[in-house]
Nucleic acid binder design. Structure first.
Lengths: 193, 193
DNA sequence: TTTGTATTGGAACAATCGTTCCGAAATATA
DNA sequence: TATATTTCGGAACGATTGTTCCAATACAAA
């Protein structure tokens, strides 16, 4: 009986993500969304609830995808160091190809929505713990392998590389010059040697 | 003949900075400013021009003060390594004492106002070059001193420590736990050894 | 005290904010 | 084809946005 949806929900979420990612939460208006997504104002509210709910849904998507991507990046590489290298190289390449200089959606949201939004804060804390624990277990794996010196402290390096990863995303917004970013990367990953 | 200003312009700018710093540009309304600054709406426009001009003025202040503080931090310490250590320790302590978890105004502005705002973009690029050049010249000084191994690449490490510094400010918003931050710092500064 | 300028509170501006509602159009099932 | 249900376009909501203007007030200098 019911009429079919005339839009692909996945594609709409993708477009919404792009917009929120580029402009941030507060600077993105419903009118922006309606125009950009190409769906009706009423449909937006019927399907997604409202601006805040849409943002949360979109953000959770990005966050989850990001975590999975990081894990699979390590899985694809045959050494721990190569994994970290690939991870950072990918980020640099993405920054280089991103004409809008959107940076990282997670980092942008961190600085925009904390303090104030407890939902986002909780999600970000979870995200941090998730990625850091991936980093740390990789480093531990490397130590067991003999690939990384056993005198290293996996936790310290894990936290440090997470901070460096975040910082790289900030820097890429100001100056995405791949040469500087690669230099930075080389120095940063030297802590594993 | 003219009546004296009934408010201290310096204090007003300080309060405005606090507000923009905590909430960001877009989430701060003129009404917020009027209420928080305690001055009249008309006075705000007469004295500072408007929201954007006020923000730019406030931001430029923060940026300049920040750069000067960093330079004087190095000047006060007797070794290069101690300088970097003090710089990061100070940032950690500030994050710890900042109940509002505002983070760093420059980092927040970077992620909120780029892309789109060319004025801010230019100021941020200048800021980055300024601080990086301080970092790099300190490292070079350390190499000449013999304090830092001559095989190190000053520029690479300079870029890297700037990124780490930015990343630390992002992390501090999510989880300002000083223990983790100090661990991170220890690993990060080990690139100088 | 008078004069001249600045600041003040508050009204008012058009524009936009996020959100809601409704009648018309569309379409999968019966 | 008839029915049920949803999406659609668009108007409209009250609230708030950044900004401007004005008459009243306050105060330093003449």
């Amino acid at each position: 009986m019911p009429r079919k949806k005339q839009f692909n929900e996945e594609e709409i979420l993708k477009k919404a993500m792009e917009l929120f990612w580029e402009k941030g939460f507060h600077a993105t208006s419903i009118q922006n969304l309606v125009t950009c997504l190409g769906i009706n104002r009423a449909s937006l509210y019927d399907t997604f609830g409202g601006k805040e709910e849409l943002f949360n849904k979109v953000f959770e998507r990005y966050r989850k995808d990001g975590g999975d991507t990081i894990q699979s990046t390590f899985d694809k590489e045959k050494s721990v160091k190569a994994g970290f290298c690939r991870l950072f190289e990918d980020a640099i390449e993405k920054a280089q190809n991103d004409m809008a200089q959107k940076g990282c959606f997670v980092v942008n949201t961190t600085t925009e929505l904390i303090p104030g939004d407890e939902t986002i804060h909780k999600a970000l804390r979870k995200n941090k713990e998730n990625i850091e624990s991936i980093f740390i277990s990789q480093i531990k794996k490397g130590i067991e392998n003999g690939e990384i010196d056993a005198s290293k402290d996996a936790e310290s390096i894990g936290h440090m590389l997470f901070a460096l990863f975040s910082g790289l995303q900030v820097m890429a917004k100001v100056d995405p010059d791949p040469n500087k970013l690669r230099k930075l990367l080389k120095s940063g990953l030297s802590v594993l040697d």
